[in-house]
Protein backbone atom coordinates (compact mmCIF):
# COMPACT_ATOMS: atom_id res chain seq x y z
CA UNK A 1 0.00 0.00 0.00
CA UNK A 2 1.51 3.22 -1.13
CA UNK A 3 -0.88 6.10 -0.79
CA UNK A 4 -1.82 7.68 2.51
CA UNK A 5 -5.57 7.20 1.83
CA UNK A 6 -5.20 3.47 1.33
CA UNK A 7 -3.17 3.13 4.49
CA UNK A 8 -5.70 5.27 6.37
CA UNK A 9 -8.56 3.01 5.27
CA UNK A 10 -6.61 -0.09 6.19
CA UNK A 11 -5.76 1.42 9.61
CA UNK A 12 -9.45 2.16 10.25
CA UNK A 13 -10.30 -1.43 9.38
CA UNK A 14 -7.52 -2.72 11.64
CA UNK A 15 -5.63 -4.31 8.80
CA UNK A 16 -2.22 -2.67 9.38
CA UNK A 17 0.21 -4.70 11.48
CA UNK A 18 3.82 -4.73 12.64
CA UNK A 19 6.33 -2.29 11.25
CA UNK A 20 3.82 -0.84 8.77
CA UNK A 21 1.43 0.02 11.64
CA UNK A 22 4.17 1.70 13.62
CA UNK A 23 5.33 3.76 10.65
CA UNK A 24 1.76 4.89 9.82
CA UNK A 25 0.90 5.87 13.42
CA UNK A 26 4.21 7.76 13.65
CA UNK A 27 3.25 9.68 10.50
CA UNK A 28 -0.06 10.84 11.97
CA UNK A 29 0.06 14.44 13.30
CA UNK A 30 -2.48 13.81 16.10
CA UNK A 31 -2.84 10.17 17.11
CA UNK A 32 -5.60 10.83 19.64
CA UNK A 33 -7.83 12.61 17.08
CA UNK A 34 -7.21 9.75 14.66
CA UNK A 35 -8.20 7.17 17.30
CA UNK A 36 -11.39 9.13 17.94
CA UNK A 37 -12.18 9.15 14.26
CA UNK A 38 -11.52 5.41 14.09
CA UNK A 39 -14.05 4.78 16.86
CA UNK A 40 -16.66 6.95 15.10
CA UNK A 41 -16.10 5.03 11.91
CA UNK A 42 -16.67 1.71 13.69
CA UNK A 43 -19.85 3.07 15.32
CA UNK A 44 -21.18 4.23 11.97
CA UNK A 45 -20.43 0.90 10.37
CA UNK A 46 -22.21 -0.97 13.14
CA UNK A 47 -25.19 1.36 12.90
CA UNK A 48 -25.49 0.89 9.14
CA UNK A 49 -25.31 -2.90 9.46
CA UNK A 50 -28.04 -2.81 12.02
CA UNK A 51 -30.46 -0.36 10.36
CA UNK A 52 -30.16 -0.99 6.64
CA UNK A 53 -31.82 -4.29 5.66
CA UNK A 54 -33.48 -5.54 2.42
CA UNK A 55 -37.11 -4.36 2.03
CA UNK A 56 -39.66 -7.05 2.77
CA UNK A 57 -42.14 -8.04 0.00
CA UNK A 58 -45.83 -7.97 0.75
CA UNK A 59 -47.01 -10.15 -2.23
CA UNK A 60 -44.39 -12.79 -2.57
CA UNK A 61 -46.64 -15.39 -4.20
CA UNK A 62 -47.78 -13.00 -6.92
CA UNK A 63 -44.21 -11.99 -7.67
CA UNK A 64 -43.20 -15.65 -7.96
CA UNK A 65 -46.11 -16.34 -10.30
CA UNK A 66 -45.18 -13.39 -12.52
CA UNK A 67 -41.59 -14.51 -12.57
CA UNK A 68 -42.49 -18.07 -13.58
CA UNK A 69 -44.82 -16.85 -16.32
CA UNK A 70 -42.17 -14.55 -17.74
CA UNK A 71 -39.57 -17.31 -17.70
CA UNK A 72 -41.95 -19.68 -19.44
CA UNK A 73 -42.79 -17.06 -22.12
CA UNK A 74 -39.16 -16.27 -22.82
CA UNK A 75 -38.24 -19.94 -23.08
CA UNK A 76 -40.44 -20.33 -26.28
CA UNK A 77 -40.23 -16.95 -28.03
CA UNK A 78 -40.70 -18.16 -31.64
CA UNK A 79 -43.66 -20.49 -31.19
CA UNK A 80 -46.07 -18.36 -29.28
CA UNK A 81 -46.80 -15.55 -31.79
CA UNK A 82 -47.55 -18.05 -34.58
CA UNK A 83 -49.92 -20.04 -32.38
CA UNK A 84 -51.65 -16.85 -31.28
CA UNK A 85 -52.22 -15.84 -34.93
CA UNK A 86 -53.60 -19.24 -35.82
CA UNK A 87 -55.89 -19.28 -32.86
CA UNK A 88 -57.14 -15.77 -33.48
CA UNK A 89 -57.96 -15.88 -37.22
CA UNK A 90 -57.67 -19.23 -38.98
CA UNK A 91 -59.77 -21.34 -36.74
CA UNK A 92 -62.04 -23.87 -38.49
CA UNK A 93 -65.16 -21.93 -37.61
CA UNK A 94 -63.91 -18.65 -39.01
CA UNK A 95 -62.57 -20.37 -42.10
CA UNK A 96 -66.00 -21.87 -42.73
CA UNK A 97 -67.71 -18.52 -42.25
CA UNK A 98 -65.25 -16.82 -44.56
CA UNK A 99 -65.86 -19.46 -47.24
CA UNK A 100 -69.63 -19.17 -46.91
CA UNK A 101 -69.49 -15.39 -47.11
CA UNK A 102 -67.29 -15.52 -50.23
CA UNK A 103 -69.68 -17.97 -51.86
CA UNK A 104 -72.66 -15.76 -51.07
CA UNK A 105 -70.92 -12.70 -52.53
CA UNK A 106 -70.03 -14.64 -55.68
CA UNK A 107 -73.63 -15.80 -56.08
CA UNK A 108 -74.96 -12.27 -55.64
CA UNK A 109 -72.48 -10.96 -58.23
CA UNK A 110 -73.43 -13.75 -60.65
CA UNK A 111 -77.11 -12.97 -60.18
CA UNK A 112 -76.61 -9.29 -60.97
CA UNK A 113 -74.39 -9.99 -63.98
CA UNK A 114 -76.92 -12.45 -65.42
CA UNK A 115 -79.78 -10.06 -64.74
CA UNK A 116 -77.93 -7.25 -66.53
CA UNK A 117 -77.42 -9.52 -69.52
CA UNK A 118 -81.14 -10.19 -69.73
CA UNK A 119 -81.96 -6.51 -69.45
CA UNK A 120 -79.72 -5.76 -72.40
CA UNK A 121 -81.19 -8.68 -74.31
CA UNK A 122 -77.90 -9.48 -75.97
CA UNK A 123 -77.58 -12.99 -74.64
CA UNK A 124 -81.23 -14.00 -75.06
CA UNK A 125 -81.68 -13.47 -78.77
CA UNK A 126 -78.37 -15.06 -79.65
CA UNK A 127 -79.58 -18.08 -77.71
CA UNK A 128 -83.02 -17.96 -79.30
CA UNK A 129 -81.86 -17.74 -82.91
CA UNK A 130 -79.28 -20.43 -83.42
CA UNK A 131 -78.68 -19.79 -87.11
CA UNK A 132 -80.33 -18.14 -90.07
CA UNK A 133 -79.59 -18.06 -93.78
CA UNK A 134 -81.03 -16.68 -96.98
CA UNK A 135 -82.23 -19.18 -99.58
CA UNK A 136 -79.79 -20.04 -102.37
CA UNK A 137 -82.07 -18.63 -105.10
CA UNK A 138 -82.41 -15.26 -103.40
CA UNK A 139 -80.17 -12.33 -104.33
CA UNK A 140 -76.86 -12.44 -102.54
CA UNK A 141 -76.99 -8.98 -100.98
CA UNK A 142 -79.85 -9.80 -98.64
CA UNK A 143 -78.83 -9.59 -94.98
CA UNK A 144 -80.19 -10.90 -91.69
CA UNK A 145 -79.89 -9.22 -88.31
CA UNK A 146 -81.28 -10.26 -84.96
CA UNK A 147 -82.33 -8.36 -81.88
CA UNK A 148 -84.74 -8.51 -78.99
CA UNK A 149 -87.25 -5.86 -78.03
CA UNK A 150 -86.73 -4.59 -74.53
CA UNK A 151 -90.39 -4.23 -73.58
CA UNK A 152 -91.88 -7.66 -74.27
CA UNK A 153 -88.78 -9.71 -75.13
CA UNK A 154 -89.83 -10.45 -78.70
CA UNK A 155 -87.04 -12.01 -80.72
CA UNK A 156 -86.89 -10.29 -84.09
CA UNK A 157 -85.23 -11.62 -87.21
CA UNK A 158 -84.83 -8.62 -89.51
CA UNK A 159 -84.28 -9.55 -93.15
CA UNK A 160 -83.20 -6.78 -95.53
CA UNK A 161 -82.73 -6.89 -99.27
CA UNK A 162 -85.30 -9.46 -100.29
CA UNK A 163 -86.91 -8.78 -103.66
CA UNK A 164 -90.02 -6.60 -103.41
CA UNK A 165 -93.15 -8.28 -104.66
CA UNK A 166 -96.34 -6.90 -106.17
CA UNK A 167 -99.38 -6.41 -103.98
CA UNK A 168 -101.20 -9.51 -105.27
CA UNK A 169 -98.74 -11.56 -103.22
CA UNK A 170 -100.66 -10.39 -100.14
CA UNK A 171 -103.56 -12.62 -101.13
CA UNK A 172 -104.84 -15.21 -98.67
Amino acid sequence: MNTHEEKWTAWLDGQLTGKELEQFEASLPDISAAELEKQDSHKLSALLKEQITAPSMTNVEFFHHQLRTEIARESRPALKPARETQASWWSIGRLAWTGAASLAIAMVCTFFVMRDDNIGGQSTYTQNVLNARIGPEVNSYATISMFETKEDKVTVLWVEGLQSLPSEYAAK
Partner: peptide
Protein backbone atom coordinates in the same frame (compact mmCIF):
# COMPACT_ATOMS: atom_id res chain seq x y z
CA UNK B 1 -88.49 -20.78 -103.78
CA UNK B 2 -86.84 -20.92 -100.38
CA UNK B 3 -86.46 -17.35 -99.14
CA UNK B 4 -85.20 -17.92 -95.64
CA UNK B 5 -84.28 -20.73 -93.29
CA UNK B 6 -83.59 -20.40 -89.61
CA UNK B 7 -83.31 -22.44 -86.46
CA UNK B 8 -84.69 -20.76 -83.39
CA UNK B 9 -85.93 -21.39 -79.89
CA UNK B 10 -89.49 -20.37 -79.16
CA UNK B 11 -90.72 -19.90 -75.64
CA UNK B 12 -93.79 -18.51 -73.98
CA UNK B 13 -91.67 -15.68 -72.70
CA UNK B 14 -90.16 -14.81 -76.05
CA UNK B 15 -92.28 -14.84 -79.26
CA UNK B 16 -90.56 -14.75 -82.64
CA UNK B 17 -91.16 -12.13 -85.34
CA UNK B 18 -89.54 -12.32 -88.78
CA UNK B 19 -89.50 -9.51 -91.31
CA UNK B 20 -90.19 -10.92 -94.75
CA UNK B 21 -90.15 -9.29 -98.18
CA UNK B 22 -91.89 -6.08 -99.17
CA UNK B 23 -95.30 -6.85 -100.68
CA UNK B 24 -96.87 -3.98 -102.60
Amino acid sequence: KLLLETEAKLSKRSPLVIRGPQVG
